[in-house]
Design a protein around this nucleic acid. Structure first.
Lengths: 341, 341
DNA sequence: CTGAAAGCGCTTACAG
DNA sequence: CTGAAAGCGCTTACAG
């Protein structure tokens, strides 16, 4: 079946292409009679405007790009869901790309999206990314880009984040207030801003409550995986018997740690208390259920798209819009992996 | 910064647009000297072909649509990952849409993709979908569509699936062979082919091994959620004390069931054995670890894209290609929620 | 109220 | 080896 064009409708009705186009778009300078005729035939023939031609004329495609470090990840899939729901409402389509935490891939993907001529981009940076030329290159095309979760402070664009430092402070403080004296930290990789901030929040809490900060109690989880948690929990038990609390970068790692601790016969929370980060749904399902920081993924996706949408419209109207950083609220969810205070 | 066009390059070099276009595409009827000149300037000016114009001329966009019932789902995110990796290799971009298990949304999204003029579509049907006119409409545009996981047997298109009936049979047989006599089944919703097939495999195994099929031991999980599992496990304990095995449609539900059983003081596997389905990574992390059917999500995504890609190329070359159903292998992963035999 | 014309930025068959 | 021209299917400023 060959697609129907304006030309075809025009010929059948013996009027001009111009009039057909206008009739379909409800221009007021077309007679109601013509409009009705055109619309009827368009429906009958199942007319569908050729998106490629429309894009070329209007210079926009109502399509945005989304670059995510890792799709198979509960937090990020919640973000995706939030973005998709919002995009749907506003009539935008989303091209999804996974950077696999690789800087090279991320760079290539930004290039792909630039070539594709998307209207804007939503991105959460790869752990490896330490250079932002590719991002600035995208921005220099006068197209909006919004970063979320894993952002670069140095890039001048809008951002949607949580206050990782504050959240980590709250988590660590909770451990301190429930009686922990020797608190370890399983942190994320070195580069991402959010693992840096969580580490700093942890450190600050120790200082504020006069607990000694001991670098040997900080473990770097390269993959933020179940196995990382399991491995370091075993190491804690073996080499740091005085540790009585652990603040862990991510729930997945925390669950690995708790599983290991229990299999080593450690009482959680009485011998060692654990606080996670993200409030993954599994954290309420395990035993003991995990005390954690609620990180609003769905909402982050929603807000990121909303912000991008605003900038998209501002650019269309040639009204400049300064960049904005939106900080979403987090909260401590107390469960059974920490003691009651 | 206004985008650079062929025209601009042509003017600067004082040659024709045609020659510039050909030079950039390495046509052999352009002199090496001209080619070098054009390419150099293109690089300097950071020339990027306007994708909208190219699409309009070539009538393809190297973009496919992907409709998924639910993004926040481990199995589906693995499928997405498989699709993205493969698409990346072949230079295709993926527009992702979430149907939310809603037939109406799915229908609307097919329409959106048709309007967008994507080259092809990958889809896993919503649970609600019982009518396939929208799918056939898409197919009638001579564009390929491949279904995966949740398919419709009646639609004439390629499909990538597992043998759900056989896998369920294997799972149930394992329960029987490890001594279970009264086996319940927590099944998925009524419509999707795969929950029907898993149910049929369960039933067939009971028959083949001369165990009575008791409809009151089949529970329908509308949301295939942790809560469903928890709820029905409690019901089993309360109302069906003779049940000694459960075959469960999905790992998530199975984990909900195991958590509930343990909190009710039931010994898993000795009082009640449990087999799940999907081999979600959490199933090896819980206690007891879950015996389950390994369902290859990543591979399913990969194969689905590969098949679509083949059909895309066949259509381009006007070589017809008959539809094909690809069945991926599953396997039983024995862990500690069932007894050793 | 209707339509001829220009143009978005490219590709390619054809002429020279 | 180079280029004029047509055309992909739309939109819209402009003339009548």
């Amino acid at each position: 079946m060959k697609p129907v064009t304006l030309k075809e409708i025009a010929e059948k009705l013996d009027i001009s292409i111009t009039t057909v186009s206008k009739a379909l778009k409800d221009y007021k300078d077309v007679s109601p009679k013509t409009k009705a005729l055109v619309k009827e035939l368009a429906t009958t023939l199942n007319y569908r405007p050729n998106a490629f031609a429309v894009n070329l004329r209007t210079k926009e495609s109502k399509t945005i790009g989304l670059i995510i470090p890792e799709v198979v990840h509960h937090f990020f899939s919640s973000v995706i869901k939030g973005i998709l729901n919002q995009a749907e409402k506003k009539g935008y389509l989303v091209i999804i790309l996974q950077s696999n935490e690789s800087y090279e891939l991320e760079k290539k993907q930004i290039e792909l999206l630039l070539n594709k001529n998307v209207d804007g981009v939503l991105i959460s940076l790869a752990n490896e990314t330490a250079d932002f030329k590719h991002i600035n290159k995208f921005l220099s095309n006068d197209k909006p880009l919004v970063m979320f979760d894993k952002i670069a402070k140095l890039v001048n664009c809008s951002k949607v984040i949580i206050d990782d430092r504050k959240a980590a402070y709250t988590a660590t403080k909770h451990l301190i207030e429930t009686g922990c004296k020797n608190i370890a930290h399983f942190r994320g990789p070195l580069l991402p801003q959010n693992s840096i901030d969580r580490f700093l929040g942890y450190k600050k809490a120790l200082e504020d409550y006069n607990l000694k900060y001991d670098p040997s109690l900080v473990f770097i989880c390269e993959n933020t995986s179940f196995e990382d948690g399991s491995k370091f929990a075993a190491e804690i038990v073996k080499n740091h018997p005085n540790v009585d609390g652990i603040f862990i970068n991510t729930d997945m790692v925390a669950i690995g740690a708790i599983t290991q601790l229990r299999s080593l016969g450690i009482d959680v929370p009485n011998q060692i208390s654990v606080v996670g980060f993200s409030n993954w749904f599994m954290s309420s399902a395990i035993t003991p259920s995990l005390t954690t920081i609620n990180q609003p993924g769905y909402e982050m996706g929603k807000e990121s798209f909303k912000r991008l949408y605003k900038e998209l419209n501002a650019i269309k109207k040639k009204k400049p819009l300064s960049t904005k950083t939106i900080t979403l609220e987090t909260s401590l969810v107390k469960r059974n992996s920490t003691k009651n205070n």
